[in-house]
Design a protein around this nucleic acid. Structure first.
Lengths: 357, 357
DNA sequence: TTGAAAGCGCTAACAA
DNA sequence: TTGTTAGCGCTTTCAA
C-alpha cells in the first residue's frame, strides 16, 4: 500500500497550476476585506448558525464579488462529512446502468452529495478499487451491479463508510441492499408463458455468478415446477451482452426439444437472441419463438425489437436507495435491510401471449 | 449561494455514522502504537521521502494491521492537490459516452486521479453544476460532450482548476480541447459518397448547437461544394437520439429530390434512420439508400445494422487527453491547444460503395 | 451577535 | 534518519 507514485505526481504540479491561475480565494480573504473574523464568514455559509442577517448578506455579497466558495474538503475535515458518495459500477455495457447512474448521481446531488465514480470490469476490480475510494472518506459507498466480497464490506465499515448494494446482494451479511425482485420477475415470466399455453420453455442466462442472474432463473424454474411444467432448458450465455445472447440462441435452437418460448436474463441478451433468430435462423418473431427480456431499457421499445420485458422500476429503486441512505446516515438505530422492488411486465410484440389476455 | 441545506445534512449524521462503525484510524494511532512520530508515519506513505526502509516497513505493516490509509482529503489540504478529476458529462443516452467515460476514469485512476462525475442534461446544467464541483478543488475539470460558457470557464480558472473540453470546443478561448476531427470526418464521408457516384446527398443533423454536429455538416457540405456536387439536403433531427433519427428519415424521404445517400450526425441517429427506412418505409438497405454514421459504437456492428461509419478513436482521444492533462498540471509554460484526432471509415454494409473500391 | 482559539488529519520546513 | 513545529482552510466551542 504505497503512495500514488505516478507521473502526474510531480512536485512542480501545484506551483505550475498556481502560476497559471490565481490563488484560490479563502475565508480569510473575505474576512480581511470586510473587517470581520473568519468565524463570521464561516457562519454566513452555515445554515443554522447564529448571525445577524445583515452581516450574512454582506459576507455573501463580498463572497460573490471575489468568487469565494467554502472549500468542501477543508470543511469535511472538521465536520466529519465529506459529502461524497463513492459509487462503483460494473457492467457499463448494459445500457440500463448508465441510465441508473445518471439518475442516481442527480438525486444524490440534490441531497448534497457529490458522486465519486469508479468503473470496474466484471472481475474483482471493485474490491481492489474500493480502498482508494475510501481514502476520500465518502459518506456512503454505493455498489452498482457489482459484487463485493464480505471482506471488503468489512473494510468499508471499519473505515466508517456504510455500504449500499444496488442490484446485487450478498448472503450472510447485514448489508443494505436494494434490488429488483428478480425472483418475482422470473415467476412472472413463467406464469406469463404457461398461461399462454407454452410448454417447451428455455432460459438464456447472463453472467453466471450474479444474484440477478441466479434469482431470475430460480424464480422462473421454481414457478414452472410449482405448476408442474417441464423444467426449462437452460443455455448459458456467459455474460450480459448482445454477442452472448446472439450466440446462445443459436446453440439453444440446436437443442431438443426446440423451445417455444425463451426468457432472457436481460434485455441486451434478449436483443442479441432476437437478432440471431431473425438474421441467422430466418425465424419470424413471435410466430416461431416468443422472447421475454428483463430491464426495459430504451432499446426494448425500438420497433424492430419491440421487446416484451419485465421492467425494472429504476426510479423507484433509486428513490428507495436515497431514502435508505438517509436512514444510514442519520439514524444510528437503523438496521440495514435487503429490499426488493417488484418489476412489471411490459407487453410488446416479441412474445405471442394471445388468447389468455 | 447558501449552504447545502438538505435533509441529509442533519447534525446527528456524523455521530450516527460513528456510532455504527469504529472511528477511522489516523496516522496518530499508528504513531502511538509504534512509538514513532506522526511525521514518520507520513513519510512511510510518501514515495520520495527520506526514511529508513526498515522503519517504513514497520509502519506499513502496522498500518495494514490496523487498516490505516492516509486521508486524501486532509493530505490534499496541504499538498494543494486533491487528486480529484471533476468530470461533467451530458448526452449519456449516446452509448459512445459511457464507453469513453469508463476508459477515461480508468486512465485517470491509473494516473492517481479519482473521478468525481456529474451527469448533466443537454441544457445549461453543466454551468450550474460546476461551482459545486469546484468546491472540491479538483486538479482538473473534464467536460465531456457538453458545452461550457466562457464565463464558467473563467470561473474555473479563477478557482485554480484547468479545464479540458472533450468532444466540444468553444471559439475565442484558449481552453484545451480534444476532439475528433469532425470536419475531416464530414469531408471523408462526402468523398466516399461522391466517389461511389452518388449525386443526391443528405445530412441528418443532431443537436443543433454543438460543435460536433456543426463541423460534421460543415466538412460534408464544404467538400461537396469543392467537388461541385449538388448541395446536400439537410434534415434537422433536433437531438442525438434514435427517435430523432427515426422521425427525421421519414421527413427526409418526403422531400424532393429523394436522396440516394444519407450521412447521419452520429450512429444512434443513423440507427434510428435505418430502422425507419426498413420498418416504416419498407426500404432495403443499402439497395434503396446508403447510410453512413459517425462514432462506431458497438451497436454499429450488430448484424441487422452493420453500419458503415466514421470511427472516433476513443482510446487515442483519451490517451491524448491524459497526456495534455499532465502538461497542464506540471508545465507552467504549456499553452492550451485545440487538438483534433482524425477518424477512420469503417466499412460495413449499410452503404453500397461498390466499384470504386 | 461576534471574535479568539483550538483543532480536524495531514505534510513540510527546520532542527536535532 | 527522525522529531518538533507550523499551518493548509475550515468549523466550533467558549468568552466577551
Amino acid at each position: 500500500m504505497s503512495n500514488t507514485g505516478n507521473d502526474l505526481d510531480k512536485h512542480t504540479a501545484a506551483s505550475a497550476r498556481r502560476a497559471r491561475i490565481g490563488r484560490r480565494v479563502t475565508a480569510r480573504d473575505i474576512a480581511r476585506s470586510l473587517g470581520v473574523s473568519i468565524s463570521t464568514v464561516s457562519r454566513a455559509f452555515t445554515n443554522d448558525a447564529v448571525i445577524k442577517p445583515a452581516t450574512r448578506d454582506r459576507v455573501l455579497a463580498e463572497a460573490r464579488r471575489l468568487g469565494y466558495t467554502p472549500d468542501s474538503l477543508a470543511r469535511g475535515l472538521i465536520t466529519r462529512r465529506s459529502s461524497i458518495a463513492g459509487i462503483a459500477v460494473a457492467d457499463i455495457t448494459n445500457p440500463f446502468y448508465p441510465e441508473v447512474l445518471a439518475t442516481l448521481t442527480r438525486r444524490l446531488h440534490e441531497s448534497g452529495l457529490q458522486s465519486m465514480v469508479f468503473f470496474a470490469g466484471p472481475g474483482r476490480q471493485v474490491d481492489e478499487a474500493l480502498p482508494t475510494l475510501l481514502q476520500y472518506n465518502p459518506d456512503v459507498a454505493v455498489i452498482l451491479a457489482a459484487t463485493l466480497s464480505s471482506e471488503t464490506i468489512r473494510t468499508c465499515e471499519q473505515a466508517g463508510t456504510p455500504v449500499v448494494l444496488f442490484n446485487r446482494y450478498v448472503n450472510n451479511t447485514d448489508t443494505l441492499a436494494i434490488s429488483c425482485d428478480n425472483l418475482g420477475g422470473g415467476r412472472l415470466v413463467a406464469d406469463t408463458f404457461l398461461d399462454a399455453g407454452y410448454q417447451r420453455l428455455a432460459y438464456i442466462s447472463g453472467l453466471p455468478d450474479t444474484s440477478t442472474n441466479r434469482d431470475r432463473l430460480k424464480g422462473f424454474s421454481e414457478r414452472i415446477r410449482e405448476r408442474e411444467g417441464d423444467p426449462p432448458l437452460v443455455e448459458d450465455a456467459g455474460s450480459f451482452s448482445y454477442e452472448s445472447g446472439f450466440n446462445a440462441l443459436k446453440r439453444l435452437m440446436d437443442r431438443r426439444p426446440t423451445p417455444e418460448a425463451v426468457f432472457c436474463a436481460n434485455d441486451i441478451v434478449a436483443i442479441g437472441a432476437l437478432d440471431a433468430a431473425k438474421v441467422e435462423l430466418g425465424m419470424k418473431i413471435p410466430r416461431d419463438l416468443s422472447v421475454i427480456g428483463f430491464d426495459d431499457i430504451s432499446m426494448a421499445a425500438w420497433p424492430p425489437y419491440s421487446l416484451t420485458t419485465v421492467r425494472q422500476p429504476a426510479n423507484a429503486m433509486v428513490n428507495l436507495t436515497l431514502e435508505k441512505i438517509e436512514c444510514l446516515l442519520t439514524d444510528s438505530d437503523y438496521q440495514p435491510e435487503q429490499l426488493f422492488v417488484p418489476g412489471r411486465l411490459i407487453q410488446r410484440t416479441s412474445a405471442r401471449l394471445g388468447e389468455s389476455l
